[in-house]
Design a protein around this nucleic acid. Sequence first.
DNA 1: ATGCTTTTTGAACGCTGTTCATGCAGAATG
DNA 2: CATTCTGCATGAACAGCGTTCAAAAAGCAT
Lengths: 219, 219
Amino acid sequence: MMRRQGLALDKEEMSERVIAIAENLIEAGGAENLKARTIATEAGIAVGSIYNLFRDIDDLHRAVNMRLLDRLGEAGAAAMAELKKAGVTDTRQCLLALARAYAGFVEAHPASWPALLAFNRRQPAHAEPDAYEARLSDLLQIIARVLADGRFGLDENRLRIAARTLWSSVHGIVTSGYAANSAGRQADETWEQIELLVAVFIKGLERGGTLDHAGAAPS
Amino acid sequence: MMRRQGLALDKEEMSERVIAIAENLIEAGGAENLKARTIATEAGIAVGSIYNLFRDIDDLHRAVNMRLLDRLGEAGAAAMAELKKAGVTDTRQCLLALARAYAGFVEAHPASWPALLAFNRRQPAHAEPDAYEARLSDLLQIIARVLADGRFGLDENRLRIAARTLWSSVHGIVTSGYAANSAGRQADETWEQIELLVAVFIKGLERGGTLDHAGAAPS
DNA sequence: ATGCTTTTTGAACGCTGTTCATGCAGAATG
DNA sequence: CATTCTGCATGAACAGCGTTCAAAAAGCAT
């Protein structure tokens, strides 16, 4: 065979290029702005060539999303590293830093992130959400570690659930806050909510110890 | 003029009919299943007639969403009424009932509700989200009242924020939980998270009184 | 019956994602 | 060097989409 020695782009290079273009398109006008012909034109290739790199446009969108998730994970890890370097171990400050990392990430990708969320909903549920779930699991691990360091006396299972609860809550606050940018207040109130959530969460965990759930499961 | 005396459907009746059809289509296959020609066929009218009732398909989807929000509001109000009839005043039980109402609503509309969420993201932000915001405000009022009855010593502003925080958090838990139905566990873990959230929230509010937020605003 | 107004209609337009016969450049073979 | 052979690039073509609009139909007043 012997591939690649000229100056044209390798197949993988071209894939990266197309993914980058796709991300820009989505960021510019949402997922519905991801058109095959636009990609082809901007990448300098034919429409059909896209389908040699990706099965279909959804597959390309998936690739963009994976890249987004990677960057989100990096943002979370970076936030933790910064805290460690500054010698901060306070649970509250750690959680707030992680939340800020997430909020900042969403603000930095005002169209791509909603597109990912919308994309991830209309999945036939099967497929291979493994890669997605795996990347998200890393983030939950970070949160769980912070909670573990807080010494609230949570067993492994409740640690996992608490981390997930915290993550989902912050996620809900950030996304609803972003969606409800009708009036002037948006980021401010979002951050107030996050501060309240974290404060209340810590105080709630400190008190009462194990927090056994007395309520019965829903019908 | 003199309208409507024959046996054909009134313009408004036909709108209702089309909205019902649209809702079924969305529920069956997501927002992307809402095709003009399918609607026309099922409603027994021509494609063009749809555009006499609605400006475009998005407008129709908006109408479906408004109806959904109305029903969600009714579900919340019904949950509260049921609690009142049973003489329950416990804050925890009230919040759990409201959360269960929301979770049940989402489960009852596994495709329409995600479609609403996705729809509400790619708005040019302007338009008239007033109607949307108004309906959501009612729900927040209900939560705020429950929190007020809890006597946590919150002023009006922090009451509003706490209600919004709680709502957004439950929303985040329910939607992420629904999206992450990869393995077997889904509703169970979702409910565990809600219970943890509510418990922690109440305990956190009980303690520390005003919960002054010491952290500075984000950069 | 006539005229006027309003609504309904469906063919047509432009756009979309996707396919696939064709062409062609580069490696392998003689 | 000539010649297969192979695999990717190509873009016209296809089916389907939302949307429009001239024309037909229907409704109402006279």
